[in-house]
Amino acid sequence: MTEENNEKSGAENLSRRKFIRNSSYAVGGLAVGGVLGSVIPWGTEDQDQQQQAAKQVKNYNNALMYFSQAEFQTVQAAAERIFPEDDNGPGAKELGVGFYIDHQMAGSYGFNARDYMVPPFFHGEKEQGYQGRLKRREIFRIGLREMQNYSHQKFKKGFTEIAEDEQDKVLSDFADDKVNLSTISASGFFDMLRSMTLEGVYSDPLYGGNKDMDAWKMRNYPGDQMNYTEIIADDNFQEIEPRSLRDHM
């Protein structure tokens, strides 16, 4: 691969081109400016255009329904470590995963509205699944506080203030149950954080994540298409401009 032999900036340019290429079908080949300018983290040459773009994409959905500001920052930072920004394109933070998780916590999923939450509660085998009385939103709040505590205990700083590799250490200690928690399962919380991060990355943008379908573009996922009859038997890989449910209204 030529990318590996290049200087870092060269590799960045190349992958930037790759991401712009993947993004470009959203605006019919126009690679920069307009709505797109604001979603490419590497910026554009024209500042006026950029400001205009920022105005156009002001998203009134980007506010909090459940988390405190501090909890939100922690969720966002943790999700970013699970699905980080890299040469392929944006990470969880840029894609809006923090808002996605916040909004889910505020709704029926956060309240376990469609789960069987009837007592008595007993500790079971892991093959029997979750048997706690806490709701997801409560688990998340406790989990985030414990992540902060563990970060302070281990690195003398809050989770959002420590270095990336230190954040990874906190997360992997949770994932591997190396943290002793009395109220919730550390790995159970991590698994929930991981799965909700992927949900926020890849669900339809209507839920607040997958901003501008950028996650779909990274993996060449076409989103909501009415049919694939013409290409289903085709031998070639197809790059198809993605569509969201908003486009279907």
Binding site: N112, Y116, F122, Q128, G129, Y130, Q131
Partner: peptide, 8 residues
């Protein structure tokens, strides 16, 4: 074993 509900 004690049977427990499939809660999810």
């Amino acid at each position: 074993m004690r049977a427990l509900p499939m809660r999810q």
